[in-house]
């Protein structure tokens, strides 16, 4: 809870900065945990309903935890005409999840994003914070395989 106070203090305890506060919470936890939202509601005297409406309106927020590996596929126009949508189709098949969902083992989550502004090197895929340009299905396959291998190695190690 101390962390939450810090985040609110950083935003001057201002009701107007509620979107900024939620963003900081999202950055810190990777999603917006329910109990945290209730606690902010009390601390700033903002109805939970309003916080809920903000959290579901803005795409940057998620009410559910995300996977260890967050895969974002850009579906901006430039990426679309160069085949970005095929990558999404492939990942849906491969991971057996839809965009916005996380695999059962909690390893992968799939998201689509409407343009990351790296259009010149599309199609673009972001894995956690790293951006990969000029992607195609085969390159994505290698990327996923790399992550799975790493996980397997870790499991064997422990």
């Amino acid at each position: 809870m101390k962390e939450i106070d810090e985040i609110i203090a950083k935003n001057n305890w201002s009701k107007n900065k509620i979107v900024g506060i939620l963003q900081d919470i999202q950055d810190r936890y990777g999603y917006l945990p329910e109990e945290v939202l209730f606690s902010i509601s009390q601390k700033l005297n903002i109805p939970v309903s309003l916080i809920y409406s903000l959290s579901t309106f803005y795409k940057a927020f998620s009410l559910k935890p995300k996977g260890k590996y967050k895969i974002k596929v850009c579906l901006g126009t430039a990426c679309h005409v160069r085949g970005g949508y095929m990558i999404v189709e492939y990942l849906k098949n491969k991971l057996k999840i839809n965009p916005g969902e996380t695999t059962e083992d909690g390893l992968f989550s799939l998201e689509t994003v409407n343009c990351l502004g790296a259009c010149a090197i599309g199609p673009v895929v972001v894995l956690n914070e790293n951006l990969y340009g000029q992607m195609n299905i085969n390159k994505v396959e290698k990327l996923i395989k790399g992550m799975k291998d790493e996980e397997n190695k870790k499991q064997r190690g422990t």
């Binding site: 009701k15 107007n16 979107v19 939620l22 309106f57 803005y58 940057a60 994003v113």
Partner: peptide, 20 residues
């Protein structure tokens, strides 16, 4: 910081967003 909503590029929506 924006919240990832395209409509916030529209001036009145953008201002509403700044207001929280």
């Amino acid at each position: 910081r924006g919240g990832g909503a395209f409509v916030c590029g529209e001036s009145t929506a953008l201002m509403a967003s700044i207001e929280g």
